[in-house]
Structure formats: C-alpha cells, structure tokens
C-alpha cells in the first residue's frame, strides 16, 4: 500500500467514497506478542465488512486472512463508507494494539475520522503527481483503475479489455470489477468505484472503437 496516495480520481466533492486501512508491524517489533495483536486487529477489520481485503483475491477465508496478517506483519483493506471506518478506528484505538495504523483517502475524510476517534494525524504522505515521460501513460480514466493497485499489477490492457467486454454485453460491470480486483494481492482495489468507472468507460466510444482496448480480441480476429 506504499502508493495508495497516488490514486487518481478521488474528489472532495465525493467524500467518503474510499478509505484504505493498513496496519503494519515495524520489522524490529515482530514477535509473538505483536503477531497476536495483529490477529486481533485483522479480526476487527474483517468484522467491519470491508469492500475488499488482502487475501480475498485468492479466495482466502477469514481465518486464513487473520493468520496471513500475523505471519506477514501487515494487513490491508478498503472501505467505501467513512462512518464505518470511524467506528473501526475508534475500536482499534480502544484496544490499543501497539502497532501502526495508516488510512489512505481524502485528507478531509481522514481528519473527520480522527476527530470522531479522538486521534490527531501523526505523519502524512502527500502525492505531487506523476513526472517524467508522460507519453508512456494510459488515458486518465484507465489510470483511475490502474492506480488503485499501488504495485502496478492491474494492467492497462486488461482494464481496457474488460471495459470492451462490458460494452459488448459479454459481462457486467460488477463482474468486470471483480476480475480487475484479482491481480492486486493487497486486496485494496475498490470494487464499487471500479464498477462505476467501467460503466463510464464502456459508454465511451473512444474506448470501444479503434482504441487499443481490446488488444487480445483484435489479435484473435486477425489470426482466426
């Protein structure tokens, strides 16, 4: 989740649309005591019903997610409701796990959550955009989905391929969002927002006609 801060498309005009939660044990503090604290923290996060969570892309059960969090020292999830995250953070604070918790989203949302939970922001990470050879980047709508995976594992071609399949009526936007959430091993692709973006993409003729969108399908037509 190093780069959830670089997510594109979040807007102060749509508060509470997306908040990522991450907890990590500092590498020098990894021991049985902190592993148990992480188990409890993972249980708490799961209980609040995230939109997506680490391990879900490979079909992990809640117990497997909890054990994986304890073993790796990290857990990540994404929520689509600010009030829920507020209650979650307040409960985490009460339990005093002694491990770091990070939120990623609109600073105004995070501030509201901190106020609700009786916390003050400790350290912040600000994104100042993408520099360098911008000609290599895909269009801005594709980036709104691609940047949801901080490790860059959601391929621009796959996003455009899925959008085209939706435009052709061969899958729903919800199914498409589910597919695109799979490459992200941290489980932080916001499936609800992705579904909405895919619907927009499918409606745009620029994505369904003559675009690089359906690379594989075009190749298939060429060779079959």
């Amino acid at each position: 989740m190093t780069h959830t801060l670089n997510r594109r498309g979040l807007d102060n005009g749509r508060p509470g649309e997306e908040i990522c939660v991450l907890s990590m044990i500092h590498y020098q503090d990894r021991n049985e005591e902190t592993a148990e604290a992480m188990r409890e923290l993972a249980r708490t996060i799961i209980a609040y019903g995230p939109n997506n969570i680490m391990g879900s892309s490979v079909g992990a059960t809640p117990e497997q997610i909890i054990e994986s969090a304890a073993a790796s020292g990290v857990i990540t999830a994404v929520f689509t409701d600010k009030d829920t995250v507020g209650r979650l953070v307040r409960e985490i604070k009460t339990k005093d796990p002694g491990i770091s918790v990070v939120l990623s989203g609109l600073f105004s949302d995070i501030h509201d959550i901190c106020e609700y939970a009786g916390l003050t922001e400790h350290t912040s990470n600000y994104a100042v955009g993408i520099s360098g050879n911008a000609a290599l980047l895909p269009d801005h709508i594709t980036l709104e989905i691609a940047t949801q995976c901080g490790h860059g594992l959601v391929s621009r071609h796959y996003i455009q391929h899925v959008a085209c399949r939706i435009a052709e009526g061969k899958m729903t936007a919800r199914e498409g969002a589910e597919l695109l959430s799979k490459p992200c091993v941290c489980g932080i692709v916001n499936k609800k927002r992705t579904e909405e973006i895919l619907l927009k993409m499918a409606e745009l003729t620029s994505f369904t006609e003559g675009h690089e969108i359906n690379y594989a399908v075009r190749q298939k037509r060429k060779f079959s």
Binding site: I99, E121, H122, T123, A127
Partner: peptide
Amino acid sequence: GYVPYPNGKVNLGIAALKG
C-alpha cells in the same frame, strides 16, 4: 508545475499510544 492530490496517506499514531 505540480498540484498536490486531495488524497494521501496518514499514519494515525496509534502505535505511539501503547502504554
């Protein structure tokens, strides 16, 4: 020539509360 994003990442300082 840059615009800071309205979103970002915030450490809540919860580990520092312990004890």
